[in-house]
Design a protein around this nucleic acid. Structure first.
Lengths: 143, 143
DNA sequence: ATGATGTAGGTGTAATTACACTCTAATGTC
DNA sequence: GACATTAGAGTGTAATTACACCTACATCAT
């Protein structure tokens, strides 16, 4: 008899379900926006992170993206095959794999950023300007 | 020169990256909690949704979970193999696939719910009681 | 120096995600 | 009733996610 109430509570209140559900829906919208360029929202995030600092070690980039190291490794494969990202060996530590954007990667990113701005504006509109910064700090608190 | 600033902006403000990053981190914690039972956080969400209403059509369940219909179809495979979920044909419309928990599914869920409560309390603690309901409505606004 | 410990990264396996396409059954039109 | 359209579901392919396990390199202690 409490079972039915519990079931409703879980669906409505579960932090994990709530955030994953929202994440799927948001990602689908960004994926739609980037589709003409042949990249996904996740691939865009990787490329944009590389724009920030190049070259960057795989592990450091994984931390930045809050992603498992091995997940990032797999996600890099299509980007390397598409010649958007390249690996460079580092002198001081031969274990680390330095990741950088290629010329082609930079060019694609230049085309992707205006598209990102539109998708971003659309998502922010759903949150109201004043809510998003607060929401963002809450996302970080969950990390 | 604006490029570097843009790069930082994207990493810090992108709604898609922010929510997916947080979703990965939250899911990892729930996955850890459920591991002793041999299920993932995503599988728990499916089982809990079935507790709410049985039997349920695949498409309707996918909507509830904000998941693509075909994704749910794939995610059901391990649950059916583990005999936690069963399919029943419906009389009135032979296209729909009715999904229900098995006896084994109910038993597992009974053991999973106390674990969920602990993981849930942990996540809510990170958001503060007053923030989570608001955060939840923001997640829904993104859908 | 050499042996222990730790760190960066890769691979095997398995689940999660979803688009494009297909099949089948229901429904609506004539 | 025959045919077109619509709706529910499954499959091919490919990317995303991550744990367990492995290798190679670096660093530290003795």
């Amino acid at each position: 008899m409490t079972a039915k109430l519990t079931a409703n509570d879980i669906g409505a209140t579960c932090v994990c379900l709530g955030i994953r559900k929202a994440a799927r829906q948001v990602a689908r919208r960004y994926d739609d926006a980037f589709r003409p360029l042949g990249i996904t929202s996740g691939q865009f995030s990787i490329l944009a992170a590389l724009l920030r600092e190049e070259p960057v070690a795989l592990g450091a980039l994984a931390d930045t993206l809050g992603m498992d190291r091995t997940t990032l490794n797999r996600n890099l494969k299509p980007l390397e095959q598409g010649k958007l990202v390249a690996t460079s060996a580092t002198k001081d530590d031969r274990r680390v794999r330095g990741l950088s954007l290629t010329e082609k990667g930079h060019t694609l990113l230049d085309r992707a950023i205006p598209i990102w701005r539109r998708a971003q504006a659309d998502s922010e509109r759903r949150l109201t300007a004043t809510q998003w910064p607060r929401f963002r700090s809450q996302l970080r608190a969950l990390g």
